[in-house]
Design a protein around this nucleic acid. Structure first.
Lengths: 302, 302
DNA sequence: TAAACTTACGTTGTGCGTAAAAATC
DNA sequence: GATTTTTACGCACAACGTAAGTTTA
């Protein structure tokens, strides 16, 4: 039996559903089923009553739940005491993050991390993906979190820690605002506002056009801006259309300040990558943060 | 982090040595090293100070030790409470065991199991290995523990859970009592006292002679006895030589009632097998006992 | 029939053993 | 030089994802 299983168990007990717990823990539903079966087999008794509306704890399950919560709480206490002993909590982590992650995903993760480690000192440097890789290589940050595409480098460890859908964004007054998807051929005539080269959202789009057989020079790029906020403003004013991670424009979409649509024949998606030097030795606090990012509480938008 | 790792950790802390802990937990020493490294990496700090004389806990290690003991104790409490809830503790386990295991290894295991589950009702049926397999197939026992050799059967799960060295036993007054080993060629002329066919010690020996190219009829078998105790008595009196698991005659050897020697060109060893029907469903208590037998507190002589 | 859980199966990563090396008394 | 821990590597099993199946409201 391991603490991770107790964590899964508590999550399931809390939300009373394998499916919901799976989503929260970033697993598939069968994975949850399987782990529960392992636990039930271990303790030799059913722990959940299953039904088509969800699950509920059996009496034995209630007992396991009580202890599981206790174990998790005590283990956090152990980690805190270790921190005190080693002075870990006063350490500093420097993270290099590309703009979508740094502005939209990381802050809430940092926030919940800070709840566990209030004394931790975390600095986030926001740059575009290419610059992040440089910062990592130059050892100027503990690790980098950048948007994809995935790559490999002899000195770097690169791990996918999340993903986001990339959508086309337009002004709500734009001619496209009544449709939900367009073809890439239609797209290429429209005035484009893009981030600077080195930005991942831009790279993902350029890759897609290449795949569709459209050379970069055929694109109608009317403006290149070094900041995401700038692109957003330009699009809102109707100067052209652009691209963004869907999560980064959810707020604007709900406020009806922006419209978004998808490509007809293609899924634009952007992996989030954790990047660090293979030879890097991490401080205990940095390791905790990595566990935090990679683990069940993975990189997520607020 | 999992409870097994905490168990390893506590064992290491207790005996202050990776090597000793490895033996106690029936692992190799590198496996222990590796697990400790995993834990040290997880908590981000050294937990043991290594030296050529053994290891000792660092302050961080002491802290982990304290919590690890706590976790293990609490988890046992959880299992006990589950037992009470389900009435598991009043259940009965029926084990079929072959004579060496049933008489020499199992009793002490049952004894320590009973310490954890005082209400458990355990019945051991002692028969020779062949009969044990029949009992399992006929579903007359929950599971069987028999001496090897290993085999496979479509309806049976067969797992090796231990091993013992087989030695030649003689009276202390025997002409061989001054030597520590003989060849199989010398052996075949000597008067042999064997257990009945179906006994594993006998099978192991017959297998060995076959391998050495000696047909069974060339052997000088002077007596066949249906009980281990009978064989022992006959050997003590000097009627012939026989075979036994080394652990089963340790007591007699130290009392100088028996002498034992090994074969020159061959290692006679006998696996201990756990055998159960593939379709068998175990009671919670039986599962506990199986965990107990298979796990770190594996089948061992008293 | 739609939503929930289970089963089956292929892939990947972790844990272990064997063998050889390095370190310390 | 003997004892103890570490490193390297191959294998086996366990955990997960995908896809198809079963149950129930």
């Amino acid at each position: 039996m391991n603490l991770y299983q107790f964590e899964l168990f508590c999550q399931i007990a809390k939300v009373r559903s394998f499916t919901k717990a799976a989503k929260l823990m970033h697993l598939t539903q069968p994975a949850i089923s399987s782990q529960v079966q392992v636990m039930e087999n271990f303790y030799g008794t059913k722990l959940f009553e299953r039904s088509a509306t969800g699950v509920k704890l059996t009496p034995a399950g209630e007992l396991v739940y009580k202890y599981a919560q206790h174990f998790l709480a005590e283990h956090e206490k152990l980690e805190r005491e270790l921190d005190n002993l080693m002075g870990t909590n006063a350490q500093t982590i420097v993270i290099g993050a590309s703009s979508t992650i740094g502005n939209f995903a990381l802050p809430c993760n940092v926030w919940s991390f800070k709840e566990k480690y209030p004394e931790a000192n975390i600095r986030i440097e926001v740059e575009n993906s290419k610059k992040i890789i440089e910062l990592v290589l130059e050892d100027k940050v503990d690790f980098g979190l950048a948007e994809g595409p995935e790559f490999s480098h002899p000195d770097l460890e690169v791990k996918k820690v999340g993903e986001s859908q990339v959508v086309i964004i337009t002004s709500p007054n734009h001619e496209l605002s009544s449709s939900n998807s367009i073809t890439i051929e239609e797209l290429k005539k429209l005035p484009l506002i893009l981030r600077e080269p080195g930005s991942s959202v831009r790279e993902v789009f350029i890759e897609a056009t290449k795949k569709a057989g459209i050379p970069a020079k055929d694109l109608n790029i009317v403006l290149e801006l070094g900041s995401f906020q700038g692109v957003l403003e330009a699009v809102k004013k109707g100067h052209g259309i652009s691209f963004s991670c869907i999560e980064a424009v959810k707020k604007e979409y709900h406020r009806q300040e922006l419209h978004y649509l998808t490509l007809k024949d293609m899924e634009l998606s952007m992996p989030f990558l954790l990047i660090y030097r293979k030879d890097r030795t991490f401080s205990p606090l940095a390791k905790r943060f990595l566990r935090f990012i990679i683990g069940p509480a993975a990189l997520e938008f607020c």
